[in-house]
């Protein structure tokens, strides 16, 4: 009898202990934190660890090589080129997407039927995968069946082989990415523009500011934080470009569109399956992205403080 009693009270006190918010919180968070630790933090440390090894996908002949992989990177022209291609893509894509998205948001900020319809349409490519977009654009730009070469031809222009042309392939991929993603920027900027208090415009109007002046002196300063956010996320996202390249050009022609992630992927997951070296390249890419994220975060918070 007594035994049962103590077990019940033990159970109760156990329950009482974990029902206090300061203890229950850990139970609430445990699954997420464990998953993040196991499938993100540990692999992340693993990337750094692997980059000091010669290790292949079959785990044969694994050897500690110190900094050799990093030294190899600086002598590997294809690896360095892949970094430059990534930067090139980023410089093409980010400004274009931010400008197109912001202008669309500003133009469609008033809620009319036409504007709402336009916004819904501009968001459709966002839900379409980069794979599907890649397939669509490969065909639109295909010299045999595509519309874009045909239309250009009608205007008397020559019809290049967009994805197979060394100079045009990357810009084509960038344009396609803007087409697919500007709806995201538009949505974020729309939220920012609609959050501007109408009284700011009223007082600007009373001061005799015309629409153009209002845009540059009221709208722009008010949306700077969101604009900065879009630039930042876009920069970081573009540095990870992979899907659209994998589907359309697979890095070609002659590796001219090979991005850093594409290079890491093909080095690690196709012959010669060098996981160690691929990890070293991934580490370098991570350092670049981390510097970008941290510095842009610092810059943004500095700007925001200045504006207050």
């Amino acid at each position: 009898m007594e035994e049962i009693d103590t077990s019940v009270s033990k159970k109760r006190s156990f329950f009482r202990f974990w029902n206090q918010p300061k203890h229950a919180a850990y139970l609430f968070m445990a699954p997420s934190i464990i998953i993040l630790l196991f499938f993100m933090v540990i692999p992340l440390i693993g990337t750094l660890g692997l980059s000091f090894f010669n290790i292949n996908i079959f785990f044969t002949g694994t050897k500690f090589v110190g900094l050799d992989n990093f030294v190899q990177f600086f002598h590997d022209q294809r690896a360095i080129n892949s970094m430059w291609h990534t930067v090139y893509f980023t410089l093409l894509e980010t400004p274009t997407q931010v400008i197109v998205g912001t202008v669309a948001a500003a133009a469609l900020s008033r809620t009319t039927l036409f504007n709402r319809f336009s916004r819904s349409v501009f968001y459709v490519p966002v839900i379409c995968s980069l794979t599907t977009s890649g397939i669509i654009f490969s065909m639109l730009l295909d010299p045999n069946i595509g519309w874009i070469p045909y239309v250009l031809h009608q205007f008397g222009m020559s019809t290049p082989q967009f994805f197979r042309d060394a100079t045009l392939a990357m810009p084509s991929i960038a344009v396609m990415t803007v087409w697919k993603n500007f709806g995201v920027t538009m949505t974020i900027m729309l939220t920012a523009i609609q959050a501007i208090s109408p009284s700011l415009y009223e007082s600007a109007e009373m001061d005799g500011a015309n629409k153009k002046q209002q845009f540059f002196h009221v709208t722009i300063p008010q949306i700077i934080p969101s604009l900065g956010f879009c630039v930042m996320t876009n920069l970081i996202g573009s540095m990870q470009v992979f899907d659209q390249i994998y589907v359309t050009t697979a890095g070609g022609p002659e590796f001219k569109t090979e991005s850093a992630v594409q290079y890491i992927y093909s080095r690690g997951f196709s012959a010669p399956y060098q996981l160690g070296y691929a990890s070293a390249v991934a580490t370098i890419l991570f350092v670049i992205i981390a510097i970008l994220s941290v510095s842009s975060n610092l810059y943004m918070s500095h700007k925001e403080k200045q504006m207050r």
């Binding site: 993100m40 692999p43 992340l44 693993g46 990870q240 691929a278 990890s279 991934a282 992205i289």
Partner: peptide, 9 residues
Amino acid sequence: PFMVYMIPL
């Protein structure tokens, strides 16, 4: 980014 830790994963 996922790409950075995909190999160890």
